[in-house]
Amino acid sequence: MSIEVRNIRKAFGTFEALNDVSLEFPSGELVALLGPSGCGKTTLLRIIAGLEAADSGTVFLEGEDASGTHVRERQVGFVFQHYALFRHMTVFENIAFGLRVKPRRRRPTEADIQHKVHSLLNLVQLDWLADRYPAQLSGGQRQRIALARALAVEPRVLLLDEPFGALDAKVRKELRQWLRRLHDELHITSIFVTHDQEEALEVADRVVVMNHGRVEQIGTPQAVVEQPATPFVADFINLDDHGPDWLVAARLKHRGHVLQPTDNPLRA
């Protein structure tokens, strides 16, 4: 599903979180919202999900104005920064939650729920954890369960808020490559928020660089690195220390790319 936001403004008191942001997210892409903390990226994500209301501006989901649509009808999957797993439920019940709360007419049978949850657990490669509680899992496992829970309701969009922010460096690297592969399998329109440029450049099809509630640049990872649109982007992508070719090569290498000058990171 395509997402479009038009002229979004949002202020918290005197602090301007989003200042006239307009963006389009084409169907099936994995897009990174990149920027320093406080740049408004999480707020934008929450506005798209409907968890926060914009002061002005419109969110279009599949070309339709979503302003009047309640969060639970927007069919978005949201993965929270701190996972927000239901701590009193087992992993299985966490994933089954979205299916169990459906209105009776649309609720799957118990057998279907069993089947669905186990196939999702297999997808995130954690089937053996079905009976555990969230407190018994490691951070990386929790993150994958949170993702499986979000996917259970077959969302049209997947929104991830700093999905790897709370993990240690090694797990983070593994998990983001895994997310990329998962996206290549599912092709669900996804937006993830991050403050880590390496993460954004490595994983995303397109990167939206934000600062002070404004969009600084939209482009492929390569374009953002090679032709930064503003001094802020150049500084934030941190080109001063290393030559651009080396940086791009190094950063895209993780995705199995051998970089050609004309190579398009969109085609992963």
Partner: peptide
């Protein structure tokens, strides 16, 4: 409010969120 928000995004009504998430916690 994270768990309640998660429940809402997953499609739970306010009442379901209260009985299934808030109260057990």
């Amino acid at each position: 409010r994270d768990e309640e928000e998660a429940a809402t995004v997953l499609g739970a009504s306010g009442w379901q969120t209260f009985w299934r998430v808030t109260l057990p916690n």
